[in-house]
Design a protein around this nucleic acid. Structure first.
Lengths: 236, 236
DNA sequence: CGTAGCTTTGATGTAGGTCAAGAAATGTGG
DNA sequence: CCACATTTCTTGACCTACATCAAAGCTACG
């Protein structure tokens, strides 16, 4: 995370010390145990050390929308500490190890090292950019485009933390999770994956995503990774 | 805007002076003139004094997704100043008067009054909460639910700035704009509006939204405005 | 006072949903 | 290491919400 923030704001020694202190509270979560629960007050944020998690909202009708999938290195639940009550749920997808960041610690870190607030603002904006792209996915792309776009984005993010290559990556997401992420039904997700596989673009089977034809996939999804790359410190 | 931020962070006299300085550069935009253009570098942010604007993304296919509708008092284009190149467009819907906030001014304001960064972080998070809700709309709600939810959210926001009541509000959005916001076709937007009108819930005609049965509409949309209300300064 | 952008409606097409049921995989306790 | 349960995947048949196409009536403003 420090590396991520440093991409935007040049952090001093002091900044780094204050930050590392935020990491002190290590926790472990099993699948099925909420990390953050919608409607609860006084929730924490987390920095994922290992494992995958999902942030989602549940509708009264029972259907749910996954807002984003978090991978190691991600900072999650910021809104749940900035607001009095959490407006979303976060649930592990695999076993998760994470550092808990309490509200008071975060806010006091902000006042101790003001640049940290700016850096976190930047990180939150990068996050928002992803949600926006996700909205475009769901609002204006067909099912296969959505799926292609999603798998590419995930791949790009995993590569940034060394968990993927241009060839592919390990992916613990079930088709149900994909469905709730992409606003589709699980059945249709299955068909879409088959289509993409038969078209020779990606193969997602047995927990592994393999890019059979990366360029064709990029083309099909009209994937432009600009929104993920915003490096080079703006603030000195 | 100062009022909005103050809801989260107690701002000092100095903070307010620094902020008011950000307002100095007043500009006017006519319909059809982009305020921010996707892909351009070195764009500004704006605080809307009057008029409505829309932030959107265009896909190579030509279709577009409106990410949010901005009303007076809103701060827009933050991501376009935090990132090197803008990742979205902003276009006026009506004639707009706005204060331009340049990147260097914003960043220097952040270092002069550190609490401002935290306050803007909070405002950005509130914004993100709206985008998230929008994603849920498009991903998991039916067309009439989406429309109902959108009109209610807009109403709630307009009330906060004194431009609407529980009865309704003036709304300059065309059915094309609604369609691109909600991920529908313009034709279907028309039918959905008719349905809601005939069901006695809302009437949107001639630039005016009238809530015929507010409670029924809230019920239909399963609208919970919690994500809009996060007041009371967390930071002293 | 005409022309361009909205709104409205009807007819028809299709992407993706729902229901159902069997096959693989995965996990669990003995 | 096996029996059994549970989840996940896969496929087919059928259905529906919404899209697309087309055309007519409105509104507005230059």
């Amino acid at each position: 995370m420090a590396r991520k923030l440093a991409a935007f704001v040049r952090l001093s020694e002091v900044d780094l010390v204050v930050m590392s202190d935020l990491y002190r509270r290590r926790r472990r979560f099993s699948v099925g145990v909420d990390m953050i629960h919608q409607g609860q007050t006084d929730q924490s944020a987390f920095v994922l050390a290992s494992g995958w998690a999902s942030s989602y909202k549940i509708l009264p009708s029972g259907s749910r929308q996954i807002v984003n999938i978090q991978i190691p290195g991600d900072f999650l639940g910021l809104r749940s500490v900035l607001f009095r009550t959490a407006d979303h749920n976060v649930e592990p997808i695999t076993v998760v190890h994470a550092s808990e960041v309490r509200q008071r610690d975060l806010l006091s870190a902000f006042s101790q090292t003001p640049r940290l607030a700016t850096a976190v603002l930047w990180a939150a904006s990068r996050d928002e950019a992803m949600v926006v792209e996700h909205l475009v996915d769901v609002g204006r792309r067909t099912a296969t485009e959505r799926m292609a776009h999603f798998l590419l984005e995930l791949g790009a993010r995993l590569r940034l933390v060394g968990l993927g290559t241009r060839e592919g990556y390990l992916c613990p997401l079930s088709q149900y999770l994909l469905a709730d992420t992409l606003g589709l039904s699980a059945v249709h997700v299955n068909r879409v994956l088959r289509e993409l596989r038969e078209a020779g673009m990606v193969t997602f089977q047995k927990g592994r995503v393999v890019f059979d034809d990366y360029n064709a996939l990029v083309e099909h999804a009209s994937f432009d990774r600009a929104y993920l790359d915003h490096d080079g410190p703006l603030l000195h």
